[in-house]
Amino acid sequence: MTIDWIAFTPWSSLVGGILLGLASALFIIVNGRILGISGIVGGLLRPRTGDVGWRVAFLLGLLAAPVLFGLVANVPSPRIDAEWGTVILAGLLVGVGTRYGSGCTSGHGVCGLSRLSPRSLVATLSFMGAGFLIVYGVRHL
């Protein structure tokens, strides 16, 4: 392993992470809910009365973020190396996997670890481990 010091962005990543923690904190304290993106989206595919509005309001905020961010700073342009077929396959795996695993990077990785949940620790180690292995397979085998 070598460290990519050129790509390393310690300050913006730390500040960004603090904002993610702050948003998760506000969501549980103000709205009494776990901020887990896959669960918020997935619940819309199982709509129940009185359980839709909050999901839509939150997701509209998430979708509006690059628009408002763009008013004060340059929206970072993403680097996407995966081909279209891989992007679609990845989306399918993320959709199925997060629902069976009951969470993703936000719900398990941020909220779950913050509340010291052993279940979320196992989930986080599982998806991080799989991510490391897949990238190793794609890039080095």
Binding site: I80, D81, A82, T86, V87, L89, A90, G91, L92, L93, V94, V96, G97, T98, R99, Y100, G101, S102, C104, T105, H108, V122, A123, T124, S126, F127, M128, G129, A130, G131, F132, L133, I134, V135, V138
Partner: peptide
């Protein structure tokens, strides 16, 4: 489920 999610995450980076 988490392993499947992690595989998809690693494939596209999203």
């Amino acid at each position: 489920g988490s392993v499947v999610f992690g595989a998809g995450w690693g494939l596209a980076g999203f």
